[in-house]
Every structure is written in C-alpha cells, then in structure tokens.
Design a protein around this nucleic acid. Sequence first.
DNA 1: TTTCATGATACCTATTATGCATCAGAAACT
DNA 2: AGTTTCTGATGCATAATAGGTATCATGAAA
Lengths: 296, 296
Amino acid sequence: MKIGLRHIRYFLVLAEDLNFRRASEHLHISQPALTRTIQHLEAELQVTLFDRSQNFVRLTDAGRAFREGGQRVLNGMEATIDLTRRVSIGEAGALRVGYTDFAIADALPELLKRFHQEHPGITVRPHHGVTATQIQELKDDKLDIGFVTGPVRQPGFHSRVVQTDRPICIVPEGHRLASRKSVALGDLADEDFVHGPAEAWAHFYDYLFPLCRKAGFQPRIVQEAFNSVGILGLVSCGMGITILTESIYDFGTGGLVPLPIRDVADVMVTEAVWASENLRLPTQHFVDFLESQDSG
Amino acid sequence: MKIGLRHIRYFLVLAEDLNFRRASEHLHISQPALTRTIQHLEAELQVTLFDRSQNFVRLTDAGRAFREGGQRVLNGMEATIDLTRRVSIGEAGALRVGYTDFAIADALPELLKRFHQEHPGITVRPHHGVTATQIQELKDDKLDIGFVTGPVRQPGFHSRVVQTDRPICIVPEGHRLASRKSVALGDLADEDFVHGPAEAWAHFYDYLFPLCRKAGFQPRIVQEAFNSVGILGLVSCGMGITILTESIYDFGTGGLVPLPIRDVADVMVTEAVWASENLRLPTQHFVDFLESQDSG
DNA sequence: TTTCATGATACCTATTATGCATCAGAAACT
DNA sequence: AGTTTCTGATGCATAATAGGTATCATGAAA
C-alpha cells in the first residue's frame, strides 16, 4: 500500500478534531473507515502518529511533524492544480518577448506595462536580440513575439507596426551646426561620424546608409560605441556627430544638440512579429491586446 | 474521482518518456492502465496535459506547469515522510532548553555545541527563565530540559550538576581593597553594594545573603542593575562593589579588580533538570548525552 | 451498577485500478 | 503496393482498495 493524498486529508482533519467520530463526520465517512485509514497510514510510515486512549487522542511529536509537512503537500497540490488550470486557459503562463535597442527605447516598456495590467498572471520574459536573430528564434519556437526593425515580410508570420522613428542628427555644443534649427542630410557629408554597435544596429544602418548615398556621400566612421549611451558620450566629447532616432536620443541629454533632418521622409519602423498559426494562449492574448491598442 | 499522488507519479514518468508504452514499463504497469490514469487525471483537471498523436506525445503548456508543481508536491511528500520517520526515532525534532544567566555564562554553550555535533537533526530552542519559572514550565511540559540554580529536589524530576560557581568579589581600581590578594566576607560589611537584576538573580542572592548573615552583616544595596554588564559598569564607575560568580565576571574586564573570597566554602551549583518519566526522544537523547559527558 | 462515549474489529459491498485482448491509425520497411 | 511494426485507445473481466453497518471492549460519568 502507498500513502496517498487521501491519507493526508483524513489525517489533517483528525489532527484538528482529535476525535475519530467527529473527524469522520467532517469527512463524510464512517468512523471505522477513518480508523482504518489512519492505521494504514501509520503502518506504511511505520510511525505512530496519534496517542490514543478511550479518553483522548493526541498527536505524537512525529504526528506534529507529519501535520506540518502534510499541510504543505496539500497546499502545494492545490496551488499546482489551480496554476495548471489557469495556464490551460491562458490566465497564467510565460510570454517570450524579443526586443531590439530601438523597441526597448520607446514603445515596448509602456506596451508591456499595459499588457501586464490586463494579464497579471502572464510572466513576460524579455530576450534581447537583433532582428535576424529574433526571426530565427520565432521559427525555432524559442520566442513568442518579436519586436524587430521592419518591415517584416516573412511567410508564416504576421506583423504589426508598433513604433515609427525619424532619424535625428546629434552634434556637440559648440559644433559648427549647433546653432541651426535643422539640417539637410547633405550638410553632413564632411563630418566625422560616431557609429552605433555594429551588429545590433545593422538594420538601422541598412535604413540610414542608403539615404546618405542618395544624398551623395558615404559617412566617415571614426568611432564605434557599444551602446546608445556610449554614442552620445563620444559625441559630447567632440569625437564626431551621429545620427540616431528620436526615441533613443530621449535617453541622453547634457552637452548635446539635436537637429531634425528636414529632407528625410522615410521612417524606420519597429514591428511586433508573431507566427500566424498554432499560437500559444499567452501569445494569442498578447496579439489580441496589440489589436486592441488601436481604439485605446 | 480525486487526484492522487499515483496520478502525479504516472504523469511525471510519462512526461519524462513521452511514450505511453515505455513509461508503462518503467512504472511496471500495462500501457492501457497508464492511458486511462492520464485520461482520468486530465478529466479531473479539465485540462489537456499532453498533445497526442500516433507519432509523438508532447507536453502542453499546462502540462509543463503541472510537471513542475507535481514534482514539487512529490518531493515535499518524500521529505515529509522522511522527516516524520526521523522524528519518530528521535533523529530529528526540537529540544526546548531553559537557561539562567548563570548557565548561559559558562557550561551551557559548550554543552549545546557538543550535543548539536552528536545530534545534528535536533533543533535546540533556548528559553531564558529564572529557576522557579523553569520548574513550572517543566511541569507544564513547556520545557524539556531546564538549566537552573540548584540544588533541585523536585518529586518527579531528575537533575544533574553541570556547573559549580564560586562567589567572587569585584571592586573598582583604586578601591581600598583593590590591592588585596583576597578578602574575607566580613571585610565587606561596611561596603556599598551593586545588586544584580532582582528577579532573575533571586536564587543567587538566596545563596549569598545567608552567607553574609553568617559573617555578621547585611549587604547595603545602593544600586540595582538590569544585567551583569550593568553591574560591572556601575562597579567600575565607583558606585559600589559587588559579589558575583567567576563565570559571569569572565565576560567583563576593564577597570575592575576581582578578589577571591577566602572564607566561603559553599559553591553555587547549576543543574540540568528533567522530568523522570515519559521523556520525548530528543530529551532522552540529551539526557544520555549529559550522562556521557562524565567520561569525555 | 448502569449509561454513555470512545476507538477497534468483523464482514460485506461499492468503487477503483489493473491486465489481457484487441482496435485503429500512421510510419517504415519489403 | 503490401506488409509489418510502431503508436495510443477501448471493452471486458479481475483484483485491490475504500467504505458502510453492526458490534465489541474499555473507561468515564451518572
């Protein structure tokens, strides 16, 4: 015979009542059934859990230890059943979200915050990754939703624009262009450029460099930084100028001058991407949530 | 039907093998029995735990949640059974130990340390209390072992001397007696005395004052401190002198002069006390341990 | 003493779990 | 194409387990 949850349930009620008859009534079984269940439990444990006499029933030290542990086991069982049910209807679970430097700088934080308010049981697990990596991870089912630099046209995937970024030119205070209201791309032909992190920002430069070429020049890169803070730092100490997006510039401040680029109409879009079939429930909820963000 | 540990065990093996036939072999049951147990489990949960097809079996998200929780429940059950068995044979459990200021100052710490080495599964729960309180708590089964100021001759209790203390006179540096090698009790008749915490040290003064009376004087108390550190502090700033035990004096140092009292033969004993019947197993182990400390 | 309450036991029934034989569908091999 | 060989599911009979009723033994209270 094996110990089951039934034994624990009966034991705990008896440990509470310390009276076989009353406990058996609370359990809606007969008193002999309870007596035997406890006997079987004690036999299986090879431990006496109750001191019995005709006058009183009381827990032994071992019985007290079993009561604590048994209560924990029962609570754990209940919690597990509840969680499992909630996961099965999508009220709980994990959502694996990929993001780029650009997504995390603007749309994503607010989006995830609102999603969490609507679905507090769903844990968001963020994974940093460039666009190409995220697309691959979506295909490998390592990711549920990607936030990537678009536009994305992958067969088997849906996408939705969540953020548009305009390029902006950043120069240090005192720079020859610092007093301008705006610049044209061609004005920057002879400048030294500080470059963003090469791999992570590949998509951004895929967007930017063709624009420069159209304006008749190839940016002269003199420094490469590891992240956006690094770029702005290098610019502010006069190593050069840079072009990045408004949302990323919002993070930095001191000693820098932002200049709109008036002759660039193209925007860089960040899109949410997800598989078009067999969505996990948390993913479906996130997609529904994204769709609902139009009206809201 | 109710979910039992059997369902969890079967589920976990299947979740490992992801193959009904192999899992059923590992469980030493037939494949149909496993199939139906999982069906019952899913029916009871109202949750699909496995995606089945003829080609593959794999966990759903809910199944993964149930696997984690179920594993925890099973581990908890195993740990509980083990702990209960260990408690029942006295390998684990709690020992409620009472102690006085005098016991904690000398014999007790080393004793408990050695006991813990021999019985690492037994948690010692210390309770501070004066002798009278401890005796009452022993009678009320609120304490397993008391360390009290003796001698104790309580019917229904056994005791054993664990520590003997000689009284010692403490005077501040520069005191008229400070240059002596030792004093007689009678030399202190005209001194001002700093008194220990009245209630906690009642037994000590029950031992000390009769000795003074025999020496022909009644100590003149000018200050009462809350604990031994307070006593020594008051003495060192010249409020008076005091008499306490060597072990307690060992705690303090600066600015004080200890003087043996040469004409006092009586010692103050600290004893371990325990009920003589119906000992809990941890208590029995401690008593056996105490007895073994002779030879060691 | 009698009465009442306790927990334990005997015996039978109901429920549940299991094994065996078999089915149905898909893949792999001939 | 046909056959074999996996897969998991199902029907039915059996075994194991849990439960109910009646009753006993013992100690406390009336």
